[in-house]
Design a protein around this nucleic acid. Structure first.
Lengths: 340, 340
DNA sequence: TTGTAAGCGTTATCAG
DNA sequence: CTGATAACGCTTACAA
């Protein structure tokens, strides 16, 4: 496997490397005749452009990183698809890493990106990442967009959704349907996203004169089984609960199981709203009413913003908050008198 | 942002670049004294290794590509996690691309990998990829591991599961339970994976003296709703069917819906086996008996094999076929007298 | 044990 | 419009 170089193509075409380079990149003025000669030589030689050499020379690159904490979560799968699509449009390559919430792996990935002179990155930082990590990133001076997990450092661009508003919409929906005994199920205790969603939940309850009960706000892991487990304990103590806002769709699916096991049919005997609008939400029976946060769109927007930063856009840091939408399906009953 | 180079570190430490390079890579014999001096200079200067320059010089790289057709499919999410983890162990970076079944995007990604001198790749090729694509890949002479979708080209390494055997296990299970009128539901018509699974299905039927009925083998898209739709038509024509092997778990979930709609309870009036063992399989009611294919393990194994190829392992192409396992749950009745 | 210097394959500057 | 040639930052014979 001999690699064909520009010089070899140039020799073959009887021109200089400078000329070949210019033809390749459509720069400068090249006569039609030589251009064709070069193109032919290029074609015949089976030349493959060496991006590494170009990057070294240009002190630049076309590679960006994406750091997630859990790629197996369908939400992040969607987001990755959106970002990947956007990067592809710009002929950029996407490095992927999965921190699995390990701060060490996260740091290693970022270091690796620096060594490989990536030109930017999109991060959904591991839970509990210390400020030092972000400070280090700033010192590096490389475009970095934070996504999904809210961050209070105002120096970074951020793309996410309005958790507060989404949760308010879900809660308002249940209230309009007449529910008063509403629980909030799911999320981990130290999650900022969860804090925002709980904020939306309780504020909307209060707005309607309903006092939030702390005992009815329970955490769970991001899995169907843990959602089911947690809901079981909750409903045993408080059978008067008739509705719930769930932190995530997968948790809502678990809650559905628990309800059925107790002989209560979701959508008839109990109203349930989820969060995320994952694919399964539309497919399950009854179809899950949920707050859609457009994961793909977050990926796309993050990609767009990252690209503009790479291009040199130096406006002050932005916070792009995508509006959530309430997707009314069947899990709160077949009522369709919700106007918001 | 001035980039610190080896030369600058060398100057600072009062040694040559060769010395710094050797210290950095723990090569050659360096006296303890100078090593320490260099380490100090390295530290004080905030030096960042330039992998690009090293790669150019070495005509190598530490970057591999992963091409999928649908990253939003949970199965591939799992697989990606397995591969990513394995690559990380070897300090390699992973490029990700999502072909969305587009042959053009797939080709673009591979070309891009070549330009960036990736040192290997893992591919789950788009459906209907022409042989020319694979031939082109061979000419490139770069380690490439195919995964999941069976390929009849014997020149490539392959990691996947034994669809034939898995399907046989599922079918045998139903036969042992006494079923004779068994359908096969799901998969797209031009899928090689499906062909293998159908092969296992029919061969096992024949082994037990049951003639496979072509009308009872129906295709569907990879969604719960289409599984439901397809099953509905099937059961209307052939109410005598009492069991089914499904191409995928999600299809099986759709079939469950259809059964219930017709007043038949899965696990009691009808026996159902799925394929994939997705998370939902364990959680649905009745829990789905299914063939497990260990997506994460496929990713891990593919990574392992790729790494060995990159290291120069030139044994003939391998086919790593991970053994499927029948996970008996409740959707075929609560019988537990299956011994295989 | 350490230094010198010639590449790796591009790009860009400057002549011609 | 085209050609020489000096970088880009690192590695590695080969010298010293």
């Amino acid at each position: 496997m001999t690699t064909v170089t520009l010089a070899q193509v140039a020799a073959k075409a009887g021109v200089s490397t400078a000329t070949v380079s210019m033809v390749l990149r459509n720069r400068g003025r090249i006569s039609q005749a030589t251009r064709e000669r070069v193109l032919l030589a290029l074609d015949e030689s089976g030349y493959v452009y060496n991006q590494t050499a170009a990057n070294l020379r240009n002190r630049s690159s076309n590679q960006v990183g994406l750091l997630l904490h859990d790629i197996t979560n369908p939400f992040y799968g969607e987001m990755t698809a959106g970002l990947s699509h956007e990067m592809e449009r710009h002929e950029m390559l996407l490095f992927l890493a999965n921190s699995e919430e390990s701060e060490e792996r996260q740091q290693k990935f970022v270091d690796s990106l620096m060594r490989n002179s990536a030109c930017g990155m999109v991060l959904c930082a591991a839970r509990g990442t210390p400020q030092a990590f972000f400070d280090g990133l700033k010192r590096r001076n490389i475009p970095a967009i934070m996504v999904v997990r809210p961050l209070d450092d105002p120096d970074f661009d951020f793309v996410g959704t309005d958790n507060f508003l989404g949760s308010q919409m879900a809660t308002a929906h249940l209230l309009k349907l007449g529910h008063r005994n509403i629980a909030f199920i799911g999320g981990s205790l130290n999650s900022g996203t969860r804090a925002q969603r709980i904020g939306g939940f309780t504020s909307k309850l209060l707005e309607h004169g309903v006092a939030p009960k702390p005992e009815w706000i329970v955490a769970s892991q991001a899995s169907q089984s843990d959602g089911a487990r947690v809901a079981e304990a909750l409903f045993k103590h408080y059978p008067q609960i008739t509705a719930a806002v769930c932190y995530q769709d997968i948790v809502a699916l678990g809650v559905m199981q628990t309800l059925r096991k107790a002989g209560r049919e979701p959508g008839r005997d109990f109203a349930l709203v989820g969060f995320d609008d994952i694919t399964e939400a539309a497919l399950v029976q009854p179809a899950l009413t949920t707050v859609s946060v457009a994961a793909k769109e977050i990926g796309r927007k993050a990609g767009e913003l990252l690209f503009s930063r790479i291009q040199g856009n130096s406006e002050p840091p932005k916070r792009i908050i995508l509006p959530p939408a309430l997707v009314v399906r069947e899990s709160c009953g077949f009522a369709n008198h919700a106007f918001y």
